[in-house]
Write a protein that binds this DNA or RNA. Structure first.
Length: 423
DNA sequence: TCTGGGGTCCTAGGACCC
DNA sequence: TCTGGGGTCCTAGGACCC
């Protein structure tokens, strides 16, 4: 059996944890740049606020309904996520952290344990010790556990737990779930399935393997088997190093000159480089792309990308920034209002595995030491305590984050202070 | 004024090799 | 009716996830 624990309305719950006066009130969290809604409390959902709704179109409505609005604060959410995951690790032998707000638990070692009772115990512990509400689904495969979790969230509000152990319980889940809500079926597959009169997961299970293979590739076949109770998605509690590392963000305002764009590009490349060094890899390819704002129909549109291959794979910020700038030179075109730039590092290999170039002039040992010191200082004294000149001070491109909450759990200066009114 | 960001896996098709 | 065939590697693009 596989257990899936999923935090309810995670970002909204994190914000509310430190603002108890928001209990029972609608809360939403916005995407980067305060662009659109990416998390909603139950009260906000009840008001009809949609996932992905543009914030600027909702402003008056949210004001009228006294919705508490927050910019996203990933430092806070990451820290609370760690607390939840650490709690879970105390209950079972292995935890696979699947995303910032969900984890699969391996309960194969717990024989004769009543699954429902275990789940209730976990849920109470997380609620009490961390303060984040969770739902728990239990079933024979990961895909079914996801479905059980969704069912628990919607239909078992009291316990927050659903166990699908017997075939009859699984059948109930299959009947209940629309095929588009099955893990792995997105908009495109859903459309195709509906055209073939497949509306629920139960309908899907009846489809032939040939049809699924032909129309949905081996990915579909895997889902089909998972729904039939045959595990096809491996257990993975030691995530492999990333195969690509990407940083791409919209600017706080539109930029057009190459000088202005160089700054965010250098910063995003450096963010990638820090992540790269953290997983002890080097990158062989730097890919840069730039784009205008597709929503501004009055503007000329432009999208272009370029790939720069490095002679020797590297994790040095300075070399990667240089390569990214080379990419920008290739794709930049004056006369456009640019909205976003992004860097992707490809061909990642372990750092101790790099192929030296025959004519390589760089002093790689010295670079390595420099980067180690660079990362240490920034880890200890805060992001960008030391940085490259190319990263600049202009900050015109900075994200809009007008409603950012404090980093209650990671910055000593921002910890909540509780006052006693009588003192 | 204002519409997210960071990933993975799979397939098709071209280039190239013997 | 026919144009060799099979394998590998690379890239671009689609689909999906949270």
């Amino acid at each position: 059996m596989i257990v899936l624990v999923d935090c309810n309305n995670f970002y909204a719950s994190c914000e509310r944890l430190f603002r108890p006066e928001l209990q029972g009130r609608p809360v939403v969290v916005l995407s980067n740049n305060d662009g659109c809604v990416i998390a909603r409390s139950n009260e906000a959902k009840a008001l009809g606020i949609q996932m992905g709704a543009p914030a600027f179109m909702m402003e008056a409505f949210m004001l009228n309904h006294k919705v508490a609005v927050f910019s996203s604060n990933y430092t806070l959410y990451g820290s609370l996520s760690n607390r939840v995951m650490n709690m879970l690790k105390g209950f079972v032998q292995a935890v696979e952290v699947y995303s910032i707000d969900e984890a699969f638990l391996d309960v194969s070692g717990l024989i004769n344990q009543n699954m429902f009772e275990l789940a209730v115990k976990i849920r109470e512990a997380v609620t009490y010790d961390v303060g984040i509400p969770v739902s728990i689904g239990i079933a024979p495969t990961k895909t079914l556990a996801k479905m059980a979790n969704r069912y628990a969230k919607k239909e078992c509000k009291e316990s927050g737990v659903y166990v699908a152990e017997e075939q009859s319980q699984i059948n109930q889940l299959l009947e209940y779930t629309s095929v588009g809500d099955v893990w792995g079926i997105g908009g495109q597959f859903n459309k195709k399935l509906m055209l073939n009169n497949v509306f629920t997961a139960a309908d899907f299970v009846k489809m032939s393997e040939e049809w699924v293979r032909k129309n949905m590739t081996v990915v579909g076949l895997r889902m089909l088997n998972e729904l039939k109770g045959i595990s096809c998605i491996d257990w993975d509690d030691m995530p492999a190093p990333k195969k690509e590392i990407c940083t791409a963000k919209s600017f706080g305002k539109l930029l057009s000159t190459k000088e202005d764009i160089r700054e965010p590009l250098a910063n995003y490349t450096n963010i990638c480089a820090v992540k790269l060094r953290k997983q002890k890899s080097c990158a062989g390819v730097v890919h840069v792309f730039i784009q205008t704002n597709t929503h501004r129909t009055q503007d000329k549109q432009y999208f272009r990308s370029a790939t720069v291959r490095l002679e020797v794979a590297t994790c040095s910020s300075s070399e990667l920034i240089k390569a990214a700038m080379k990419g920008l030179d290739i794709i930049y075109k004056p006369g456009y209002n640019f909205k976003k730039i992004g860097v992707i590092l490809f061909d990642l290999i372990p750092e101790n595995n790099i192929q030296m170039g025959l004519f390589d002039k760089a002093d790689r040992e010295r670079d390595k030491k420099l980067m180690r010191t660079f990362d240490k200082i920034n880890e200890r004294f805060g992001k960008n305590m030391v940085k490259y000149a190319a990263q600049g001070y202009n900050k015109q491109w900075k994200l809009r984050q007008e409603k950012l909450s404090p980093c209650y759990t990671t910055d000593i200066a921002q910890v909540l202070i509780i006052q006693d009114k009588n003192v």
